[in-house]
Write a protein that binds this DNA or RNA. Structure first.
Lengths: 134, 134
DNA sequence: CCATGTGTACTATATAGCTAGTACACTAAT
DNA sequence: ATTAGTGTACTAGCTATATAGTACACATGG
């Protein structure tokens, strides 16, 4: 059987938020990875187990995992399980560029909606960057 | 009639992108404001005119304009027209700065989770900005 | 007051999205 | 080969979303 650790990460759903269940799962996994609560090699709950825990249909879990797999954040192995992938080293450059453009576009839209210019956003990012000594 | 300038900004739709029409309008206005192609006081195309230009239903334009109005990005005056609002006058500077920091922080978190550096994000934003101004 | 141009409200309908149900396929341990 | 555990595929139905149709209300200029 699998020798890799199962994470202790716990999911939580808000059924009254209006946010689709599969999206809540996606966001929680992304957040956990970004916050190092989930790390490369960690096994996620199985499709069925998470479906039981959250009292939802297995296909809803599948949908969430599939989107994360498409993003390269995790790998699924039929018959074995679903695991956090070894980062983005294997992802093609064009897909990577596409994702960066998406992030930038969303950031611009959000800043614009709040009445900020791209210039202001860039300046803020730059000062934040210096603050982190990156 | 209205003395304020009508902007020369042009909308463009991709009917095959799968992105809702109203959302394309919203994003283009937000982007234009962020990129200073639309400025405070500019009049947007009328609901009916834009509907004719884009060959869509007026209500679709209404929906887009309403979302932007809710965000405080524009103001509608029944019988007169729809105009880009001057948000800077309506919000305290410190709250504005706090909001900008929040947006920047979120953008950094998202980019970081996807394996990008702040530098890469800034470069992408800059090229997007230049692309808008030609 | 009237004509015209503006945004608004309400309803209807087609489409897409989300979730569920059920059955199948692959993997590994026995 | 069997069995239990895993992900996968396909279908269906309900819900929300997006758009269209039609009629109404406000603003401005003659």
């Amino acid at each position: 059987m699998a020798s890799r650790l199962k994470s202790t990460f716990r999911f939580h759903l808000d059924m009254h938020s209006g946010v689709p269940v599969y999206r809540q799962i996606v966001d929680q996994v992304r957040g956990a990875v970004a916050g190092c609560n989930l790390n490369a090699g960690d096994q996620l709950p199985t499709v069925r187990q998470l479906a039981v825990d959250l009292e939802i249909n297995p296909n809803t879990v599948v949908r969430a995992y599939r989107e994360l797999e498409y993003d390269g954040l995790l790998e699924t192995h039929q018959g074995t399980g679903t695991f956090i992938s070894d980062q983005k080293l294997h992802r093609p450059a064009d897909e990577r560029q596409r994702q960066l453009e998406q992030i930038a576009s969303d950031s611009i839209a959000r800043a614009g909606a709040a009445g900020f210019t791209i210039r202001e956003l860039i300046d803020q990012l730059r000062s934040a960057s210096e603050g982190r000594k990156q």
